[in-house]
Design a protein around this nucleic acid. Sequence first.
RNA 1: GGACAGGUGCCCGAGCGGUUAAAGGGGACGGACUGUAAAUCCGUUGGCUUUGCCUACGUUGGUUCAAAUCCAACCCUGUCCA
Length: 417
Amino acid sequence: MTPQKSDFLRILTERGFIHQGSDMAGIDDLAAKGNLIAYVGYDCTAPSLHVGSLISIMMMHWLQSTGNKPIALMGGGTTRVGDPSGKDESRAIRSIAEIEANKEGIKSVFAKVLQFGSGKSDAIMVDNAEWLAPLNYIEFLRDVGRHFSVNRMLTMDSARMRLEREQELSFIEFNYMLLQSYDYVELNRRYACNLQMGGSDQWGNIVTGIDLGRRMGTPQLYALTCPLLTTASGAKMGKTASGAIWLNEEQLSAYEYWQFWRNTEDADVGRFLRLFTTLPMAEIAKLAALQGAEINDAKKVLATEATALVHSREKAVAASLTAQKTFEQGAFAVDLPTIEIPRADIENELGALSAFVTAGLVKSNSDARRQVQGAALRVNDQPVTDEKAKLRRSDIGPDGVIKLSLGKKKHVLLRPV
RNA sequence: GGACAGGUGCCCGAGCGGUUAAAGGGGACGGACUGUAAAUCCGUUGGCUUUGCCUACGUUGGUUCAAAUCCAACCCUGUCCA
């Protein structure tokens, strides 16, 4: 690739954000002048985004910090339809009330990473329900639908995959592409948006939007995609049995979020530092060069920086101190995730098994029983060996809490109130 | 609308009247080893008031001492035909 004139593309390239772009030279020109107005769309399928979305949020962050304008598009309208891209199964259709509630939850994370306002490079947030919900079917078919070739849509990955695997693709999902394409055109008309960014699975939808734009008379539009994140060992990022790695604190505490990054595989440390922190490249290079046990220092920096970005610097530092006390000194940290329980439960000798369920460390009493067999449960660092064990007042430590642990890494404090 | 094939646990997939909470694999969780890493090995992987009970193989009924397995209707998916 030719050297980029713009800080935007230079930073994205050296940090590993770029998977594919429609016309790099064109994007570079606009970016160099600070004339990029780029949007990323987010589904409102859950009350919070998870780390899978973070990479595109970071793209918007860099876009803004290099003088261009980001648009965070809430899929309040498109979520009512469901994107088949990269999914081998139909999504459940969600109720409109649920989508609206999710939208409110998702909004909060953007305010932490982007600067909103009315200035030239201030971020804005819009909801595509604004123009999609009032659409008239006949008008939409005549104005927009006529520009689409079903023949070509069937060759797009999202549709082809379903067809090849003999899985059904409903008409409503098939239409998702039309709506996303129309979003792009509408955002161009309303906000002069000229770039759409997203994961590499969005490529088909994005270029279809560019194509629609040309047919409907917009100026040249551009596409830029980032790689879909997997860990070095190939697992999808941010999905574990205990749940996705959510960005909102209501869904996942800052401490647990910090822990997620702290447990990064060695091979991923450099890549993640580049993608998920704003540290200077020189410093990242130094950290990524650490070998053996020393790489743990790099992981701590990664965890703290990444947590500071979506939570806050204070919470990130607090999480790192908690972790230090808990893991390195084996000491008791009062700021581990804490669950309050009625004091009466302890007076009545709460069963240890159900206490672990209440704490959210295991999903059922049966699960707790199995973990006891596996010697995984501990109360105040003492292994639970008896399934019938009870929590008593004497288990409450000097800090007024009982520490419950699952395995070596997961700890929760119970605070009787 | 017709013919055929199919719908099994988080996912893939075997079973095709009883010994099946359901082989095998993947994923996940726990243990050992380490560096709160990876790889490897071991264990676990429906629920409960747990030596027992309850719920589960698309849905609802039926046959049988006994059904994921047989029958009927319905729902859904795929392929071909109209």
